[in-house]
Nucleic acid binder design. Structure first.
Lengths: 250, 250
DNA sequence: CATATATCAATCATTTTCTTTCAATTTCAT
DNA sequence: ATGAAATTGAAAGAAAATGATTGATATATG
């Protein structure tokens, strides 16, 4: 019997019984005690179960996903720092809009608030959100092939039904005179509406976005609170005169 | 035997068994161990499977959706025949509604018509549809965790904006007196509306669905054309007196 | 508390599986 | 046809998995 097979069976048994003892597994799997012990060690290291004297038990928090959990221990990239900061702004019970895009995607794994309602137009956002047992609404609309963003009139219409405690947006350009911009007009329309519908609006923009202008305007600078990792004090103070900027530390 | 052929067989076996061992594949495919190992390496690089010591296993993500996997292994060929037949009903330029669910999912790979517009509430449908360069709208709504179906008021509202040349629905029960039924009331509401909005409505129901009744009614028998693999001539003629049934051949 | 029993981690030899490499063969493009 | 590239099978050494054994540690019982 293959190692992977045994692991699968062990986890399945655990799911059913909450607790399994070694001898039980030895019989069930026709393997030696040593092998079973090794299996349990490995599975414990992978955070799939908890070893207890005489056997193994189900994890108390069943919801942790290794792929997401692993990353949170590694060094955080610039975008991740921003995402983490933004995620911590979310409070229990909030209704939030989460824009499509990679930066907002990163936020998901750092969300700790309970009892959330999330609305998103990011197709890829859905899976990790559901994995965290967060109640999630997906906007309808035309599916933009490459990015997995739902856009267009339908998306705008379905968005209009909501009001948010907090809106989190990604943008491509942040500029003193041209405000917040993004290349795709369809996406801009959606972001623009989301901006209106949020009581508090946060824009996640790393330092590469400043002084940049792209095709379509989403809104003015002071429509949102900008979260960034921009270090240059000149740039920061320049923009501080026009809007609220929160600079995250690593 | 061609490399691509082997790859196909390997993936198919994996889908059925969750885990295959090398020796098994060596026998089944009449190839050397080296070749099989190379196959597995390549497939792993393409993210089609996960190598484990002694063989290969289904990707975690695929195993984590047992609800869908279970269903798709059951009655696979029968359903595929139905799906293929239904897909051939689609004509160039059609606007169609494709219900969430495994049977309608199978349809996608058989679609050959060009210049389509597809509206669906099946989250999983989106990827294969986009891969085929089919213009696709996704309904908004609450994402039902296990099945990947978008349901609820929002979904119903966004659906109401459309009209379809053809609607393709999956159901759980087909019954002479109780008509078309499905367990989840939320899903039923959506299916019911989709049924109204389609100029032609097709229900895909394999033979296990006949004489079955589940919790919520979607519509009457004669609201739709039923596509099935039911062979029993008695049952077929019984239902033929109430509605149109198209029986597919294998 | 002390003893008996069960469970545990660590190690070793054996077996199985893996990776790497090489030569023979087939396929493909020129 | 001819050489280049891909595919294949075989083989050797590396790596992983296994079961048994050891002495240590934890739990239970009187």
């Amino acid at each position: 019997m293959l190692t992977a097979e045994r692991h699968q069976v062990i986890l399945q048994l655990l799911d059913e019984k909450e607790i399994v003892r070694i001898q039980e597994l030895v019989e069930q799997l026709n393997s030696s005690e040593s092998t079973i012990r090794r299996d349990l060690s490995q599975l414990e290291k992978k955070n799939k179960l908890k070893r207890v004297h005489g056997g193994a038990s189900l994890l108390q928090q069943k919801r942790d996903e290794p792929s997401i959990l692993e990353k949170s221990t590694k060094n955080l990239t610039e975008k991740e720092v921003i995402a983490k900061y933004a995620a911590n702004l979310i409070q229990d019970g909030d209704c939030i809009f989460l824009d499509a895009g990679t930066t907002t995607y990163q936020m998901i794994k750092y969300i700790t608030a309970k009892d959330l309602t999330v609305v998103t137009n990011g197709l890829n956002h859905l899976e990790p959100l559901l994995e965290k047992n967060i109640q999630t609404y997906l906007l309808g609309g035309f599916a933009k092939p490459r990015t997995g963003a739902l856009i267009g009139q339908i998306a705008v219409d379905s968005l209009r039904k909501f009001r948010f405690d907090k809106t989190f947006l990604g943008v491509n350009g942040v500029h003193l005179t041209y405000g917040l911009t993004t290349p795709d007009p369809e996406e801009a329309a959606l972001k623009s509406l989301a901006l209106e519908l949020g009581q508090k609006v946060y824009v996640l923009a790393d330092h590469t976005k400043f002084h940049e202008v792209t095709f379509t305007q989403i809104g003015e600078l002071d429509d949102a609170i900008i979260i960034t990792d921009e270090k240059d004090p000149d740039i920061v103070s320049e923009y501080r005169s026009k809007t609220v900027i929160e600079v995250v530390e690593e």
